[in-house]
Write a protein that binds this DNA or RNA. Structure first.
Lengths: 127, 127, 127, 127
DNA sequence: GTGGTCTAGACCACC
DNA sequence: GTGGTCTAGACCACG
């Protein structure tokens, strides 16, 4: 289900957060669907339960999931507002990465192509 | 000259690397121009010299500057090859950020506008 | 375990890098084996932890080891490609040293004998 | 006459020492021949005279040249003994470099070919 | 317990 | 004056 790189410099819990975000964004995991329990995921991935917990808490903080104590963790509905803060941060990151990419020779057309691909992937599920 | 967030989770030397990259990319600092000396920057920013050193060595590793021991640190000429690896990494990051941005409601047109702005900023200096 | 010359002009961390390379090359330290922790080595050699760190990071940069933050440093698998650059540098050094050695009277047969010894030492572990 | 890399990490005086050694070893500069004066070389290379001086002193220390105060610097006769110390050091370096080269995949035959080339270059002048 | 980062301050080689 | 190295010792994130 997941491929985590235990040798990566990036913390495992962050990798988990990213992977789960992808699943949510691409709507493999749908709104209100239950995520695998900490214990199950922990044994499946042979990873410390604390690490899973930390990832779930982080996703909750970012509004991607919500937790019902005693029940489990569930995918949250996307709120298209209240994200201005996060969007500002993303925009900033975007500028940084784009600057470097263009400086190193990536072409504008290549970038636009990437955008289109991502756009299809993300919004493809909606109508 | 710089605004560093000493409280950020992101290491100071990484922040410095990013800030300096921006200056180089936007050609505020030009090829072969000398960067402020480790000690000068250290006192200006009230940051330990070792931290500045680390940032400079990282920039050198990435090919953005070169160092002449006993002379100083200087902006390197851009090499348009040998960047394929770095570009692949940037592309990957790009996909990740774009996914999330689009998911959270950023519009394709907005993104393209950002690209154009960055493109002008970076390539504006060239002819 | 190591004999470092603290008075040498050669930086301690470079000496460490060389010593560790020998251990890795001669397969005293085997692939994926854990290296002594920064702190342990630091107290064993009565050398500052930062210096050990620097040596480890240099070895990582050269592809001899990899680091798992929070876990330790481990011997990397040898990659037989991507070394062309390094090999070119080594070849250059070789020519320089051989020139001087032959000029000072070292005989071709002696050198070939040395090669054979090294060859056995390095490739002896393989089949 | 010389190509010095002012951008190299290696000190300029060391580069000079190496270049001059090559000229002496390959007998472009012959025994008792006079080396260019510090002043001349200094202006030719647009390099600080102190740096040239340092290189000459180093070559003298290693027995490659001798200096007649008020006259100049001259190529010394090779002494085929008294070099045991230097030869031991070279041998040690040789082992180190060969180990790494072989470890990284350089073949024994390649190395022997290099030796032959160098041997011809160095001893070619003699009969 | 592990590596990663940072500070404060020192000494050295180079030019 | 410049970068390069090193020490002594601290704090933090990670698992």
């Amino acid at each position: 289900m997941f491929e985590l790189d235990l040798r990566s410099r990036k913390p495992i819990y962050e990798q988990l957060v990213e992977k789960l975000k992808v699943l949510i964004i691409s709507e493999v995991l749908k709104t209100d669907e239950q995520l695998p329990s900490v214990r199950v995921l922990s044994t499946q991935l042979t990873i410390n339960p604390n690490t899973i917990q930390k990832a779930y808490r982080e996703l909750e903080r970012q509004g991607y999931i919500y937790s019902l104590p005693g029940k489990g963790n569930f995918v949250a509905r996307v709120t298209r507002d209240g994200n201005t803060e996060r969007l500002a941060k993303l925009r900033e990151e975007l500028v940084k990465i784009l600057s470097e990419a263009i400086y190193l020779g990536m072409k504008k057309e290549d970038i636009i192509k990437i955008i289109s691909e991502v756009d299809v992937m993300v919004r493809g599920g909606e109508k």
